[in-house]
């Protein structure tokens, strides 16, 4: 019996993305094996978020192809989860934490159908996983920043996807939330899920992630953290001046 799972979770070939003909991601090849926890790092404006959005078809690709588990995105939409940046929504929106979590199931529900008992139970379970079960009926504006981020992660968890993109989940959260999210990420990896995280903090890359992609418009390096996250690569990504400013050299 041949191995049923394809060897590559995310396969990006020759991807180029441009805003008004200004390249933001340039001729990028990226192959992510399944079951890894990967950070995407790079300076501001290096195209990290754009890379994710282009992979998900949220911004148009100027050239190149993207495959998930050997298939184009449209065929495997439900196997791919996404956590946008926390600042991308209006947290004063009248909705509850439970309701927000249920939104993760809308894709599986399809048009018109409403969430039922089973969906509620799954959402509550996801909220328990992120420690927000007692906040289920709160309006989302009443949460702290860290709790908001965790509710976003809960929404992704109910998607029950095989591959997750997370855009800066550690941005402006407290230490407790950061630890909780890291735990969840590692749990997901132990379940053979692939998680790709846009990350800012170079100090924690080695602790949190087993794979890393260094990006500055072009792909600088990608692979297991031990191999790719070298000083030379970091220097090539950030430029030596920036590196000194970060106190990494």
């Amino acid at each position: 019996m041949p191995d049923q799972t394809p060897p590559i979770a995310l396969d990006i070939e020759d991807l180029t993305v441009a805003y008004r003909s200004q390249p933001v991601v340039w001729d990028l090849d990226l192959h992510v094996p399944p079951g890894v926890l990967m950070a995407i790092v790079g300076p501001n404006g290096a195209g990290k978020s754009t890379l994710i959005k282009a992979a998900l078809g949220l911004v148009p690709r100027a050239a190149g192809s993207v495959h998930f588990f050997g298939k184009p995105y449209d065929e495997v939409r439900l196997r791919v989860g996404y956590v946008p940046q926390r600042g991308s929504v209006d947290w004063d929106f009248p909705t509850t934490v439970l309701d927000l979590t249920l939104m993760g199931l809308y894709g599986k529900l399809g048009w018109i159908r409403r969430p039922g008992r089973a969906e509620f139970d799954r959402a509550m379970h996801a909220l328990e996983q992120v420690g927000l079960q007692d906040f289920a009926h709160r309006q989302i504006g009443q949460l702290s920043g860290g709790q908001q981020q965790r509710s976003f992660i809960a929404r992704a968890l109910v998607q029950d996807a095989d591959l997750y993109f997370m855009d800066e989940p550690f941005a402006a959260v407290d230490a407790v939330t950061e630890a909780a999210i890291v735990n969840l990420l590692q749990e997901l990896r132990s379940l053979q899920r692939t998680v790709i995280v846009v990350h800012h903090d170079l100090d924690t890359v080695t602790d949190y992630f087993d794979h890393v992609t260094l990006l500055n418009v072009e792909l600088i390096a990608s692979g297991p953290t031990t191999e790719a996250f070298t000083e030379a690569n970091i220097r090539r990504t950030y430029g030596s001046r920036t590196l000194k400013a970060l106190g990494v050299s």
């Binding site: 300076p43 501001n44 404006g45 290096a46 500055n216 418009v217 072009e218 430029g239 920036t242």
Partner: peptide, 9 residues
């Protein structure tokens, strides 16, 4: 052209 691409360098 590639030189002009990268930011921060």
């Amino acid at each position: 052209f590639e030189q002009t691409l990268r930011t921060g360098s």
